[in-house]
Amino acid sequence: MIQLGLFYMAATITVVASLLAVTRYNASHALIYLIVSLLGSAIIFYVLGAPFAAVLEVLIYAGAIMVLFVFVIMMLNLGAAGVDNEHQWLQPRMWIIPSLLCLLLLAEILFLLNTSSHALSGTVVGPKVVGIELFGPYVLAVEIASMLLLAGLVGAYHLGRRYLLDMRGESL
């Protein structure tokens, strides 16, 4: 019972925070709501019996990736001009088609959830199970993701290296 209440509370917070994250004009406010929505989904994960995924959500998404988002926002120094820009972009004719598409997707998900029988299994998935799954059946996906990240890392280093060389007055 408590679990169900927790789930609905976290779900409400997540949905409301996500909506606010989309509709805020000020970029930093939108980011805060996005963080709240991520934390809410972490709680949903926990309630659904996936504590490891929940903590990773907090650690990786809320704790590291969103920090970088905030970092970029700080670097850009969006002031009142950014808010005005957002005002212009958020006209109804801009968001009406994406919202319709989203509604379609939502309807699909609801339909799928209704037809599938096993919702809320309640089994706790510990970190060990996650690890064995990741490096067992899903090892290919993990490797591909790591290759992608490595490529990104090398690319970022290459771009940064050019800048460093420019600073030192050398050529590539």
Partner: peptide, 21 residues
């Protein structure tokens, strides 16, 4: 918690926001 250590790491990583924001 069976993920106590990760919980601690997650909380310290969230503490960044206070400085950042």
């Amino acid at each position: 918690l069976n993920i106590g250590l990760l919980f601690f790491l997650g909380m310290t990583s969230l503490a960044v926001y206070s400085v950042l924001l």
